[in-house]
Design a protein around this nucleic acid. Sequence first.
DNA 1: AAGTGCGGCAACCGCAAAAGG
DNA 2: ACCTTTTGCGGTTGCCGCACT
Length: 323
Amino acid sequence: MRKSSSYAASRIKRGAWTPEEDRKLLAYIQLHGHGSWRSLSQKAGLKRCGKSCRLRWRNYLRPDIKRGNFSLHEDQTIIQLHALLGNRWSAIATHLPKRTDNEIKNYWNTHLKKRLAKIGLDPATHKPKAAILGSANGDPKNLSNLSHIAQWESARIQAEARFVKESKLRMHASAPAASLSDEHHQFAPPLVPQCLDILRASAWESLISMSKSSSRSAALIDDTNGQGNVSFGDHHHVHDHGVNMVGQDYGPNFEDPTSDQQLSSLMGYDDATPMSSVPTESMDVYELFGQYCGNEWSESLAALHHNIGSEFEDAWNSLEQIM
DNA sequence: AAGTGCGGCAACCGCAAAAGG
DNA sequence: ACCTTTTGCGGTTGCCGCACT
C-alpha cells in the first residue's frame, strides 16, 4: 500500500519501502536479530513503526522466502488446505515452506479463487455452485445437499480442533527458543495434516449415504448431455470453457496435452504415472456414480476425490462395492 | 499517443491473543 | 488479577503497470 502522501507530515514514514531502508533493516537484523520491533526501528536508523518493520521483514526480506510462480503442487496444497481450514492463511503457510501467509492470501484472492469459480466451484465452500444455490429451495435433493454441507462443516471443525491440538503438541516437543527462530518456526518441515483422516472418513460416510439416497431417485434424474458416461479420464473436460482442474483456461475447444498429467497430479497420483495406468476401479466408480446419480453428482464426486486425495483407496473400493 | 479500466500485490488497519510487568 | 505492550492474523486499500480502446 502506498499511503505515504497522506502521512507526509508525520514523523513516521509509511508506504513503499526503498532499497536503502531494506538494506538498513536487513543489516541490523543480521547483526543483532530483531528483538523488540519498536526499538529496532530507531536502532536501525529507520523512521518506520515497528509493525511496519516486522511486516517488511516477515513478508519480503527474510532470506528463506521463495517468491514467484507457485508450482502445481503448491496450488494443490493451498486448495486442499483452504477446503479444510478456510481463510487460516498462517496455518496454510506452515504447509508451504518458504511461502508467506500474505503471499498465499494474495495468490488465493487473485488466482485460485477465480479458478475455482471458473470450474463451477464455490471458493468459500469448495462445492459445486449449483449445490449451494439449490439449497435455497426446498426440494429433497437440495435438502440432502444441505445436510452433506453440514456434515462437511462438522468434520472440518473437528479436524481443525485436532489439527491445532497436534500442532501445539509438536511445537512444544521441538521448541528452540531464540527470538530469531520464532520467525523461522513456520518454515520448519511441513507438518503432515493428519486431520485429513477425519475429513476423509467423514467424507466417505457422506458419499456412501449420498449414493444410497440418490440411487432411489436415479430414474428421475435427466441426462442433460445425453452421454451419461462420465469417467475418471475425461471428467475434467465437461466444463464448457476449456478450464482444467487447476483453472488454466485453454479457450474454447481446447486440447490440452498436459492436463491429464496435471489432473493426475492434483488427484494425488504420481506425476510420472500416465493416465492409462490409473486403476480402472476408479473409472468404474465415477461411471457408476454418474449412472446412478447423474453427471452433476459424478462431477461432485470428482471434486471431492480431488479434495481429499486418492490415498484413501480402501474406502474408495468399499464405495465401489456398495454401488 | 493518450485515456481508461482492471488485475496484482505490497503494505496498512484493526482486532485479538500472548507476553510482560 | 489487572493493565499495558507486543505480536500475530485476516481483511482491506490503493498504487503501479499492463492491456485495451
